[in-house]
Design a protein around this nucleic acid. Sequence first.
DNA 1: CCCTGATTCGC
DNA 2: GCGAATCAGG
Length: 114
Amino acid sequence: MGWDANDVALLKQLWADGHSAGQIAIRLGLSRNAVSAKLKRMGQRRGHKPPTANPRIVSVPKRKVAPSAACARPSDKVVSRRKPAATKSAPMEPKEFTKRQLYAMLVDAVKNTG
DNA sequence: CCCTGATTCGC
DNA sequence: GCGAATCAGG
């Protein structure tokens, strides 16, 4: 999984555009974890939780703790959450086309790459 | 229950 | 550096 220029561009664009890590992740075909991790590596983040909220668990480097069976969390890698509603031939631009411009260069980058 | 993002760990 | 696992909150 190599993060290409368009990948990063799309990621940054969508992220800055206000999209969520999950949406971008699904759009790129990754998990939101990868997106969030990548964003963190970039230095980009949308402060949702302060880094000094809590010191996590101590005295145990193993993140795979063994909680109660009732609190077990199976891996759910389902990638089919929000489905984009199919729009008609009618244009939908209630706002300016600033988004369009950004998206245009994005799709252009994708086209060039693809 | 679903979702969100942030951080840590193994490769 | 990447991705997954995990935690923490709304």
